[in-house]
Amino acid sequence: MEDSRLERLSCLAVCAGAGGLALGLEQAGFDPVLLLDNRPVACETLRLNRPRWNVLETDVLDFDPVDHQVTYDVDLLAAGLPRVKAGAAVARVDDEEIRVLAATIMLMHGVRPRALLVENVPDLVSKPAFEPVRAYIAAELQHLGYRHHWFVLNAMDHGVPQDRKQGILVALKGDAIEDFVVPTPDAKPPVTVGEALGASMASRGWPHAAAWAAQADRVAPTLVGGSWNRGGADLGPTGSKRSWARMRVNGGTVADEPPGPDFPWEPSLDVKGMVSLTVEQAARLQGFPGDWRFAGRKTARYRQIGHASPPPVGRALGLAIRAALPARA
C-alpha cells in the first residue's frame, strides 16, 4: 500500500520488466521519471498499469542519459537486472548479464543519482567467481564518491509467500551509507502457499480447496521465469517441481483458470491428481497486488512474473534507502 504521507522522491528504473521493483519503490515514495526495458511486452505491462509513467522501450546498453536529461540528479537509480549465471565457475565479462550490470554502473557517471539499488542473484554478493565484478563496481563507485553495501534478502521475510533469496547492492553518496539499515525481517511468520491461494482455489466452487490449502502449509519455492527463447510456462527446474509436488501442485504447467467444482483431486495419484497454478496465482506468490495486469499471452505473462522482483521487497528497500538519504539542501 502506497503511503501518501511520504515526500515524493524521484527514480530512474532500468530493466524495469513487469514493474515489480518500480511498484514497490512507488509504495515507498519514489516516482519514476523514466523506466527502461527492451521487451515490448514488458513495456506494454508498465503502460497498462501506470499510463502516466514515462516508459522507454530500449536496451540499457544503448541508453544515453544525455538524450533524457530528466534523469539527471534523480534520487535513486534502481535496476532489477537480468540474472547473472549463478552456476558459472567464472564470471565472463562478455556474458550479456555482466555487460548489462556494467552498463548500469556506468550510468552512474551520467545520471549521478543520490542512491543506487541493484537487485540480482545471491551469488553475486559472495561467490568467488564474481569477485572481479564486485571489484570493478567498487572501484567505479569509489571514483564517483559513493560508498556501497552488498547483502542478501529473502522475500519470504517481507510478506512474500515464496522462498526467494535476492542479492542486493545499495550505494549512497558520501557517508550516507552509514545511516543505511538493511531491512529487518517481518515479525509475523511467512505466509504459506495455502494461505495465499486458498481463496483463489475456491473461487470456482472447487470443494477440495480448503483441504488442499491446509496441506500447502509452507512457502513456495523460488518461481523461475525460464528462457524467453524456448519452452512453455512451468514453475521451474526439477527440484522446484518436486517441492511443488509435495504440496500437490503440478509444477510442469500453468493453468488457464482455478479448478472447478468437478475437478478430481486425488493426492495419491501423480500429476493427474494435482492442481496447477494460474498466472494470477503465480503473481500473488510474487507479491503483486490483485489488480496488477500483465500483457501478452499466457507464457509471456508468466515469464514476466517469474523474472520480476517482488514488490514488497522493493518497498522495504525503498523505505530503507530513503531513511538514509540526507535532506536536500
Rank of each mutant, 00 (worst) to 15 (best):
H307Q: 14
K165E: 14
V182A: 12
P128H: 05
R99K: 08
D217Q: 01
P310S: 11
P132Y: 10
A216H: 03
V170M: 06
T71K: 07
L23F: 12
R99Y: 00
A320F: 02
V55L: 04
Y302A: 05
V41D: 14
P132N: 13
T184I: 00
A233C: 09
M1S: 13
D64Y: 07
G251S: 01
V14D: 10
A129C: 03
E140D: 09
R301C: 13
M156F: 04
W53C: 03
L169P: 09
G110M: 01
T253Q: 14
V74I: 11
D262A: 14
A295N: 05
G239E: 08
C11L: 13
D262E: 15
E26I: 00
P267A: 09
R92W: 02
Q281L: 04
A171Y: 06
E257H: 14
G145E: 08
V219E: 06
A308Q: 14
A327P: 15
S243R: 15
P264H: 00
K127F: 05
A78L: 05
W206I: 10
R5T: 12
A216C: 05
K188G: 02
T278V: 05
L285T: 04
L23P: 12
A89D: 02
A199G: 02
S276I: 06
V74F: 08
A233W: 07
D3T: 09
E266L: 04
E119I: 12
H208K: 14
R315C: 12
G19K: 12
W53T: 03
V60Y: 04
E57W: 07
A88C: 00
F151R: 09
M274V: 01
T192F: 00
Y136S: 11
G318M: 10
V60H: 04
V125W: 15
V170Y: 03
A220E: 01
G260Q: 06
S200H: 11
R230A: 13
I321Q: 00
V84W: 10
A202S: 02
D62S: 15
Q281I: 09
A187F: 04
V181R: 06
V90K: 10
W206R: 09
P267W: 07
A86S: 14
S126K: 10
